[in-house]
Design a protein around this nucleic acid. Structure first.
Length: 270
DNA sequence: CGCGACTCCTGCCGGC
DNA sequence: TGCCGGCAGGAGTCGC
């Protein structure tokens, strides 16, 4: 489900509800996430105060007076706030009961999400090798171009590689390449320098606009405030196979690349 | 090291 | 209406 804009939307949605609250109790109903939830998380989090709600890549980092929670939403994970005592659904795996009387609840039907605790989250194996944030200054055309030299992989798979740049998932990869006018099949190492300038700008633009719109809701994404994301209305190619390109009227096509669907306009993207 | 295939899991949708 | 195959917003791991 969530790419960077959806995770950021979730972060902003829950932050006002949990910041500076105390975690009275943690309830784990199903430990079978992508990796089994450690048996001591209930004990380690009980009584801790939430001091910050951050994001790194697609991970939410909830810093407490003790450990930091490292939470990944996977494909179908979501976070929301309910009143204490609200009945839990079949896929509601985690509850964080707060001293405010509210509960931060984690739901994840496919259980591709993950939950870890760490005192040094950025040094955690899941985070330590990640590339730069796409909205930061470190990420630009020069960086992408330099990283791409000698790479034979397609440029679409290249920008979805979290060791190159984080946060660009399947929707926004297609959208960014459309905006930059680049054919997704093009080899990363055979893409010119000036195209990477356009691509880095496009990624920043798309992600910023998607965050502003509260993310993209295709089926079942809702931010922490229960609102869907409205960026779907701005999608130019993703999930638009058979429809007309708004730029040149060509029919949008899709094909599979690295086991993921790619959408593009044959005439706008070269 | 780079790359491609595979894998985890449930829900939903379209076609027959 | 009911069943079945295919596909889904992620990403770690393995084999070459």
């Amino acid at each position: 489900m969530p790419e960077l804009p959806e995770v950021e939307t979730s972060r902003r949605g829950i932050e006002p509800w949990i910041l500076h609250t105390t975690i009275n109790k943690v309830v784990v109903r199903d430990r079978r996430l992508r990796w089994p939830v450690a048996k001591d998380v209930e004990r380690r989090l009980q009584g801790q105060i939430v001091e910050a709600v951050d994001r790194r890549a697609k991970y939410l980092l909830i810093r407490t007076s003790g450990d930091t929670i490292i939470l990944h939403l996977g494909m179908t994970g979501s976070l929301f706030i309910v009143d204490q005592g609200a009945p839990a659904g079949i896929h509601d795996h985690l509850d964080f009961e707060l001293d405010s009387g509210k509960v931060l609840r984690f739901r994840d039907p496919r259980r591709f999400g993950s939950f870890h605790l760490s005192s040094k989250p950025l040094a955690h194996p899941l985070l330590s090798k990640l590339g730069p944030e796409p909205l930061g200054d470190e990420f630009n055309g020069t960086y992408l171009w330099r990283k791409s030299r000698g790479r034979t992989v397609s440029i679409k798979q290249f920008i979805m590689n979290a060791q190159i740049v984080v946060g660009v998932g399947n929707i926004y990869a297609s959208e960014s390449l459309f905006l930059a006018g680049i054919n997704p099949k093009r080899a990363a190492g055979r893409t010119a320098r000036h195209r990477y300038d356009a691509l880095a700008d496009a990624i920043k633009d798309i992600l910023s606009r998607a965050i502003k719109a509260g993310g993209t809701t295709l089926r079942d994404f809702y931010g922490g405030d229960g609102e869907p994301g409205y960026f779907k209305q701005q999608l130019e190619v993703y999930d638009r196979e058979g429809e007309h390109c708004r730029c040149c009227n060509t029919i949008i096509r899709s094909f599979v690349q690295g086991q993921r669907s790619t959408y593009y306009c044959k005439s706008c993207q070269t």
